[in-house]
């Protein structure tokens, strides 16, 4: 018997069940179909400005920084200012995200590069699929628009998120993923990012910038 068949047989023997049992199968199909939510914390269940405010507070709790701009057109200036304030070079790598591409980068002195990172970039910007107010988490999906390497290789990662995409909870983001990719479908990678990279492995002391970005900066776009 193959390892696979052996393992399945042993699971069924231990559970005292048969693979052909239709009632169990129905329960599983129904559960996958219905995807019950379980217990959703009250904390994130707020709307409008209150939700944006909660998101920003939680982002800061995760040791990232956050700023807000009134429109997409203000994003380049805001990022240029962030880099200047931290004495960082005026370079920036990004993918092919149409929302980022449409922004007026030429109004700044930033030197822009496109495509995935090969590990030598100081600064990168990505556009989030959404934000989660409950925990201050950014949800990123992979693809040519926002290559996953930009989330991890640069020293300083800037994430742009639309205020309208900031959801109450993780479950609301999964609903949007299902809407975009079909039920049971997924992007190759979904990254939830909650703060800059860190490690506590040496004497349980919290240190930022382990292998991923040392700094995480979030730009919330109203409008």
């Amino acid at each position: 018997m193959s390892a696979r068949d052996d393992i399945f047989a042993n699971i069924r023997r231990s559970l005292g069940v048969k693979g052909s049992d239709t009632i169990r199968r129905q329960m599983v199909t129904e559960r996958l179909e219905r995807a019950p939510k379980g217990v959703i914390p009250e904390r994130g269940q707020v709307s409008g400005d209150e939700r944006i405010a909660l998101f920003k507070t939680m982002v800061e709790t995760s040791l990232a920084t956050v700023t807000e701009v009134a429109s997409p057109a203000e994003v380049p200036q805001s990022i240029a200012l962030f880099l200047r304030n931290h004495n960082l070079p005026a370079t920036l790598r990004m993918g092919d995200d149409p929302r980022l591409r449409a922004m007026p980068w030429s109004e700044t002195a930033l030197e822009i590069a496109h495509g995935p990172s090969e590990g030598n970039d100081l600064n990168a910007v990505s556009h989030a699929f959404g934000g989660i107010a409950e925990s201050g988490t950014l949800a990123m999906v992979s693809g040519p628009e926002n290559p996953s390497t930009l989330n991890f290789l640069p020293d300083n990662h800037i994430i742009v998120v639309s205020a309208k995409d900031i959801a109450r909870d993780y479950e609301s983001v999964w609903n949007r993923v299902r809407f975009a990719y079909g039920k049971g479908g997924m992007p190759r990678t979904v990254n939830w990012i909650t703060g800059p990279s860190r490690s506590g492995d040496i004497e349980q002391t919290l240190l930022l910038g382990a292998h991923g970005p040392r700094r995480l900066h979030v730009v919330v776009v109203r409008d």
Partner: peptide, 12 residues
Amino acid sequence: QELSVYTTFSTG
């Protein structure tokens, strides 16, 4: 922590 810094969902 509220959540670990990186939670990654990989599909294929």
